[in-house]
Amino acid sequence: MSRLAERIGTAKAEGRAALIAYLPVGYPDVDVSIAAITAAVEGGADVVEIGVPYSDPGMDGPVIQQAVDVAVRAGVGMRDVLRAVEAVAAAGAVPVVMSYWNPIERYGAERFSTDLAAAGGAGAITPDLIPDEAADWLAASEKHDLDRVFLVAPSSTDARLASTTAACRGFVYAASTMGVTGTRATVGDAAEKLVARTRQAAPDLAVCVGLGVSNGSQAAEVAAFADGVIVGSAYVREMLEGRGADGVRALSEDLAKGVRS
């Protein structure tokens, strides 16, 4: 049973979209980042994407780059990530790991899946791994009953929307804007169009939208057409600008209202 699908389904039953928060482990250090992740849950996040620091985050904009750079230099690794997974599970949200592929490959896909399942993780989102290259991860996640979330983009063809969603379990991540992570003034109608196309390809799979949402009113806008709203850079900005766990909790509260409006 997919824990991500279950949680997103619960939100849907309440007549709202799920709130999915992203925060990387290790900024400014491991303990403070775990406290912030916990605060995101307390503020109302249903799911937390726990970011694995990576030296070459090609899909991320300057905000996330700046935070993970600190974590990379401090040597933060998968053991720290698994601690954060346990913390999120204990706080009552569904933990899912967000990682570029190489840190998982280096750790070992099978070992990663074993340890993630043991820590209470629901699965992983892999932004630079397409299903075509994912044989090891497909096998290991299947074996350990883990969710796997791949991405679709406005440039995806209908054929790719079909093949990518077929490989997903839990939800599919609709990267709504052509570009890197970061907050944006407007969400744009590309997101709604992509969600509609994705639903057509996979009517039973939850579609969650990421890239650009930073406040409650944008969250409300996206919640009107998506099953889940993913917020990353805005959370990280709370940390970079020194507002820490309190800032993260307040942002979650604002966004949680947004997805319910």
Binding site: I130, E133, F150, L151, S155, S156
Partner: peptide, 20 residues
């Protein structure tokens, strides 16, 4: 045909770049 040299090569990029 998919750019693999044995186990090496391939495409490890965001989906957004696949069309390009």
């Amino acid at each position: 045909a998919t750019g693999h040299f044995g186990i090496f090569g391939g495409r490890f990029v965001p989906e957004a770049l696949i069309a390009a």
